[in-house]
Design a protein around this nucleic acid. Structure first.
Lengths: 350, 350
DNA sequence: CTGTTAGCGCTTTCAA
DNA sequence: TTGAAAGCGCTAACAG
């Protein structure tokens, strides 16, 4: 590292335009003939500066090719304009939707998105949270409400807005935006029982929220004296072949099944293909329920029911919750919870 | 802002553990009884510190709940451990794959991912690049090779590793990892001509790289005296319904088509559904070509040919290129180009 | 192996 | 409306 910063290298381009590399506020100030703080103000609070001065600064910025350094700015102001989003994976379409929703909302407000994947593992999330916190983001969006004690403690100490998503809880770290997975299970049970199903199986990925839905399903079924005949657990992320294979095993062990509840539309899709290849008629003989509402199912598969959830909306709401919190700098608002709900909808076939 | 930093607030937890909020290196140093720089070294270069000292520091870190501040670190070291990825959208599965590939590679190396979406618009990309540069990332990954002059200039001046992806060019900003879209067009033409197709249509999203493929296709066809009968351009991002609708219009105008080249598998999928609903037999009467190799096509649609490209691999390679460049701090390596190639593969039906 | 010194580039006081 | 002084939290470069 050079001990003294060298003079700016002035590069004259063919268009006679002057370009500079690595200009700082001080350089801009010198060119504009004002003090550095005036440049800072002109850039961040233009209304506090005389139009004349503003113009001079803007010209100097142009001339020097100045690019703001948010590291320095964030260090002193404690505002990084950065929001972190932690997801288990991107393989699931609903998470991709969420990314887009979050990103769009943040970008519009001048914030940027830092992305991390935990692979459904709490210990990974713990490490990730620590790393992310070291960038002092203005907000953190987590997936789910299951976290290690360390993660929770760190996050609370960080004094940063935190939104837990895709779930509900009575003991949030800060804010929660999602829906109750137990209720999804109950609703699914009611839906299928009402249609006469009695011989249930579960085809699920090893995902904690899916487990909660299955739990809710089993509890609701038990109340009607119905129990689940078999549960097939596939590794995450769920894929179409895994769905086929799981369905094959379930049907082999229990040929008389009349309902299969899947933890994702991808698994459900695989299950439908396997059912078709075995000549099992869906939904007449066997009903299939998915989760996530992928739109492919609208055209190419036999009818199934899926749980419609809007990933983009959850992403948008989470980003908005953080942004709002950031505006009301005065006094901590009470932690907020939004139940986005869900919807059982018929899908598939034409 | 308080002019003097208050003493650390010591919070004693029920477990008699001591927690601190907002500890700095200096606090850790005080607790450990060493100098701040020693703490810094213990954390960043443990091998340069006596095991004994290391242990003391680690204990102090634990006790104070210290979380590194990378804003400060990055400001002085000019290393942010941040890599930016700019994508047009996440709606396309291949871009989701790329995100995962990039993120996995970066995380393993201790880097983090900053994500930005340009929505296929150059001016958005230009703004995004400016914002991103203000965070001084250690590397930037772009989609495509089409950028505004400002973007190119800024990026070159930034003196940061840049990788342009999903395309090839003879005039890269820095590095390129991708394949030639013209060649995809040529290969597609050869494939279809060889199978006897003569009446071509194009069903495409308004995406610049798709346009290059179509261009290549038309050039190759023209050499055999064949011209494209119609081109249907759908808005981005391509969806299944847009594919159906486009196919409907094409078939209506040109019932005798024998080949439809689509710019994505999603559009192709919609096209196949529309063909089926009109009783047009694929591939006997009409051949369909997609792009991207979505795996859904393996099971539920009639045979089509798709151009297989590996998004995750491109993401991984791009991240690796940046990481390698970052290690060889000595002397600029020559700009590097990797042609990842592509593959025409049969898909669909069972 | 450890410490001292000197900033990185910016924004927050406070004063003019 | 503008400026001067101070320092955010950290690490590079030397010494010791």
């Amino acid at each position: 590292m050079e001990s003294k910063r060298p003079d700016l290298r002035i590069l004259t381009t063919p268009t006679a335009q002057v370009q500079v590399s690595g200009a700082t506020l001080v350089d801009v100030a010198r060119v504009a003939g004002v003090s550095p703080i005036t440049v800072s103000r002109a850039l961040n609070h233009p209304h506090l500066v005389r139009p004349n001065t503003l113009a001079k600064v803007q010209a100097a910025v142009q001339e020097t090719g100045y690019v703001k350094n948010m590291l320095a700015g964030g260090l002193v102001s404690s505002r990084t304009k950065l929001v972190a989003l932690m997801l288990p994976t991107i393989s699931n379409q609903i998470f991709a939707d969420m990314i887009q929703g979050t990103s769009d909302t943040l970008t519009e407000a001048g914030y940027q998105l830092l992305l991390g994947f935990s692979g459904y593992e709490e210990w990974r999330e713990e490490i990730l949270v620590e790393t992310i916190l070291s960038r002092r983001p203005d907000g953190i969006i987590l997936t789910g409400t299951l976290h290690t004690d360390n993660t929770r403690r760190r996050l609370k100490l960080a004094n940063t807005p935190v939104v837990e998503t895709w779930d509900m809880t009575t003991t949030p770290i800060d804010m929660v935006i999602g829906f109750s997975h137990e209720e999804v299970g109950h609703a699914t049970a009611a839906h299928l029982l009402q249609r006469g199903c009695r011989r249930f199986a579960i085809l699920t990925a090893s995902d904690p929220r899916a487990a909660r839905r299955n739990q809710g399903l089993q509890v609701a079924l038990a109340k009607q004296g119905v129990s689940v005949l078999a549960t097939h657990v596939a590794p995450v992320p769920g894929t179409l072949p895994l769905g086929r294979e799981g369905m094959a095993q379930l049907l082999q062990a229990h040929p008389a099944l009349d309902a299969v509840v899947c933890s994702s539309d991808t698994l459900a899709h695989g299950a439908l293909i396997e059912a078709a290849s075995r000549g099992v008629r869906v939904p007449e003989q066997l009903k299939v329920v998915g989760f996530g509402d992928l739109n492919f199912s609208s055209h190419t598969v036999p009818p199934l029911t899926t749980v419609r959830v809007d990933g983009a909306r959850i992403g948008t709401l989470a980003a908005q919750a953080i942004l709002e919190r950031l505006e009301h700098t005065a006094g901590q608002q009470p932690a907020r919870a939004i139940n986005t709900g869900f919807e059982l909808v018929p899908r598939g076939s034409s």
